[in-house]
């Protein structure tokens, strides 16, 4: 299945194998039934067979076509269950990352306190996720990894994966969560292990390679706007999203913008809903963000 979707995690191989196997079985069923419907309605058409017969049934056939599908279905059930068991049991040496979902962004926090808006993972190293929602139900979905878990507010959800391909893969929200549901996107960026480690133990917000590869801004403020989820609702290019665009927002009043970032409810721009959540931004981070806004003329 790699031609329509990369098999980027350990479990994706066995999920795809199950998919192709059960698809073949189901197609065989379908072709068998379709063949008989087409063949019998031609062979016994009104012109070819003007004198029909009443055949009320056949007990042996009824038993066969009850027992055979039941047996095949039970086999499918078994293999579905074994895959599920794998998905639910993270290896004990997995690195645990805290995931926070909110309308409409994802954020990630590592055991050493690093916080990011994209998820960085090391190739071949298992990662375990503990997911919490700040508002409504979200669905954490990485198609390339074949994993998905609902993030229900009030509960802690759990998922894990082991990346087997380098590269960037989409993180999507799978449960309708409001206006910008389809914009609640992020990436998981799989790095070679040594590169991941170098970044993880450094002061860098993002690994150097990811900076070059992705559309990351060079300065810290731009990275923060991305990582804190601001860009889920505020565009950089002048287009209107849930909140006002950042383009041209700075008009010589840095202190006002800083207060807006730290205390969103203090002032609501005309024509926009009062939905921005209280921030988890330090004063020094807000300064960096405002510095970046100054560049967006």
């Amino acid at each position: 299945m790699s031609y329509i979707l990369p098999q980027a995690s350990s479990v994706s191989l066995s999920i795809d194998r199950f998919f192709l196997g059960s698809l073949a079985l189901c197609l065989a069923f379908l072709l068998l039934v379709t063949f008989f419907i087409v063949y019998l309605s031609i062979r016994y058409s009104r012109t070819r067979n003007p004198h029909p017969e009443d055949i009320e049934g056949n007990a042996a056939l009824e038993v066969v076509w009850t027992v055979v599908p039941t047996a095949l279905f039970l086999v499918m059930f078994y293999y579905g269950w074994t895959d599920f068991r794998t998905l639910r049991n993270p290896p004990p040496d997995a690195l645990t990352v805290q995931v926070t979902a909110r309308q409409w962004s994802w954020s990630f926090e590592y055991p050493n306190g690093k916080r990011t808006g994209d998820l960085y993972a090391a190739l071949g190293r298992p990662m375990r996720l503990e997911l919490r929602s700040m508002d409504v139900i979200h669905g954490f979905y990485i198609p390339a990894f074949r994993i998905k878990i609902d993030v229900v507010p009030g509960r802690t959800a759990e998922a894990w994966f082991l990346p087997r391909l380098l590269g960037d893969f989409d993180i999507l929200c799978s449960v309708i969560c409001g206006t910008d549901h389809s914009a609640m996107l992020s990436k998981v960026r799989v790095l070679p292990e040594d590169e991941f480690k170098r970044w993880y133990f450094s002061d860098e917000a993002a690994p150097p390679r990811a900076k070059k590869a992705g559309e990351r801004k060079e300065d810290r403020g731009g990275v923060l706007l991305q990582d804190k989820g601001c860009l889920a609702c505020h565009s950089l290019d002048g287009s209107t999203m849930v909140g006002p665009t950042f383009k041209g927002l700075y008009k010589s009043d840095a202190a006002f913008l800083k207060r807006e970032i730290l205390e969103p409810s203090a002032f609501i721009a005309d024509g926009y809903p009062a939905v921005m959540p209280p921030s988890e931004v330090s004063g020094e981070e807000a300064d960096a963000m405002v510095d970046h806004l100054k560049t967006l003329r």
Partner: peptide, 22 residues
């Protein structure tokens, strides 16, 4: 039959995780 058979496929737990809500 197509609807029913695809329903059977997505009834399998491991595969359902990938297919759910898509």
């Amino acid at each position: 039959a197509i609807g029913g058979l695809t329903g059977v496929m997505q009834g399998a737990l491991g595969l359902n995780v990938h297919l759910h809500d898509t």
